[in-house]
Design a protein around this nucleic acid. Structure first.
Lengths: 303, 303
DNA sequence: TTGAAATGATACACTTCCTGTATCAAGCGT
DNA sequence: ACGCTTGATACAGGAAGTGTATCATTTCAA
């Protein structure tokens, strides 16, 4: 490509002549004299291999090719100006793309919250959230395909910054007709021997590890009837009556016919966490603004 | 407008550097040496007031503004090339706009035929037919608002070329239950004393004049119960049973429940005519092609 | 019919500015 | 620590654009 043989200033000359249809007046408007203008127009015609003006018997008129080229020329000039303005906005971080990978359990509450916060305070920024597995997020952040990540555990990739966004307790999700619904002040001990729908270790398995540690601490062994990888699936299976589950509190946004969410007393170290991962190319105004907006929207505690 | 301070060749330089991210390689690709390239890039940055590259610690990287400007720059280059190609097409008459005014009676048969012929053989041309009165067509052709006209009589405006496209006989349009339906080989004389729906003199009145001359020649006076300006209206009123009418044969394309069309013997000089009017700015390839296409589609006789 | 004014094209000298060569300062790899 | 590579700088040469002067042609008016 790039076989453009003419130049912007020639376009400006051409537009002036096309609008005035008079070389002298056009030259005056361009703060120059007529001969160089004539020469440049002829040069432009030579370069693009087209006759733009009909200079017959004293009157200057546009040829059909000239009319077409005039439209294109004015369009090009506008776009050329606009290019600078857009670049200025990009420099200030007002426009751009932000691609964020997030784990499925963040899709219910946090992703919508972040998306609306960004849309509100940075309308020129195109925000693209993509649901993916945590190891894919780590890869994407390092390869540069992702600008941000939202994971349950910190991403240990080099140069990736991790910010603890949220620390939320687990809540018990159980069918409406379950015996435990009647129990006030639920404790983890109450789950002993109960049918349980838990996390599999398939995708990172971070939440499964927390559960295992929590149960070990209290000395409880629930009867795990099913292991799945996504929080949404747990709630669905509980809704179907397969057993009870233990999910991050934000999952209670997922209301279903046959499920209830109940708090469970448990030590803070067994809370579920949510981290914002920031790609290594940080420091740009866009990234700074996006980061500040997300932190402001989710009121984080310090990492 | 037109405050574009940079030039196309600088865009080419910028794109090369942005793609290579190395001044020397980019210079080689551009068949030049490195120092002028560095200088032009710096000049470009000065002109647009933006830092496009991060030249820190030996590696060249695009700034956010640079990324944005790179997109715009490649887009501009493509459009700049495309502008020339489009102008070439315009020069050959392959693209452009053709605005044609036409009288209402041409809308049934001829306008669709012309439109489809143009669409078939000149797909890049935008054809815009506008229904208007004949005097408006004459005005439009002279003022340059119209490229073509379609009228029943030649347009006597200066420099306007008239081509006789069609010479068609009048046919009798009459209600299905009318007494004349039974008559074989209808003649004009048969209309004596019959209820007649004719043309008014409101819009040019050319067709009314032909009728009057025709009736005078044969010595017949129909009983004119209604005068209207449009052929379509005549057919509608006949369909409603108000009387019979005499309309150009092409109007028989307008089928209605309660009407029949019948040929009427009449001398050729009383045929209805249809003229193609060509605006004074003729001679362009586009106009020539459009003219040839229309003539080919309607198989005209010589004017 | 004729002369004055205006139009775009051409010729040539001047100036501008872009290019290439030579060179420099700074950072990376060995 | 040395050499290689990177982009930036200085300067001379040359290409190219500009302005002044002028021409040929056409239009308008007297």
């Amino acid at each position: 490509m790039a076989q453009v043989s003419y130049d912007f200033f020639q376009l400006r000359f051409f537009i002036a002549v096309a609008e005035e249809l008079n070389f002298r007046r056009a030259a005056a408007r361009l703060n120059m004299t007529q001969p160089p203008l004539s020469r440049q127009i002829k040069l432009l015609e030579d370069r693009i291999g087209l006759t733009l003006f009909d200079r017959s018997n004293r009157s200057v008129r546009l040829t059909p090719a000239g009319e077409s080229f005039l439209k294109s020329a004015t369009d090009l000039m506008q776009r050329a100006e606009y290019a600078v303005l857009t670049a200025r906005q990009a420099e200030r971080g007002e426009v751009g793309n932000v691609v964020m990978g997030f784990v499925p359990s963040a899709s219910l509450h946090f992703v919508p919250q972040i998306a609306s916060a960004l849309k509100r305070s940075m309308p020129g920024v195109k925000f693209e959230p993509i649901e993916m597995m945590s190891y894919e997020i780590a890869e994407g952040l390092q390869s540069g395909k992702l600008d941000l990540g939202l994971t349950r555990s910190a991403t240990h990739a080099q140069e990736v910054e991790n910010i603890l966004l949220v620390r939320e307790p687990f809540v018990l999700v159980l069918p409406r007709d379950h015996a435990l619904c009647a129990v006030a002040n639920l404790r983890v001990e109450d789950l002993h021997g109960v049918d349980f729908v838990g996390y599999s270790s398939e995708r990172g398995g971070f939440l499964k590890d927390i559960h295992r540690a929590l149960f070990a601490t209290v000395g409880v062994t629930p009867d795990t009837v099913q292991e799945v990888s996504q929080t949404q699936t747990i709630v669905s299976l509980v809704n179907a009556g397969l057993g009870v589950g233990l999910v991050p509190r934000s999952a209670s946004a997922m209301q279903m016919e046959n499920v209830l969410f109940r708090p469970v007393a448990a030590p803070k170290e067994f809370n579920s966490t949510l981290y914002l991962n920031i790609a290594p190319n940080r420091g740009t105004p866009l990234n700074e603004k996006v980061r500040a907006t997300i932190l402001g929207a989710l009121q984080p505690r310090s990492a």
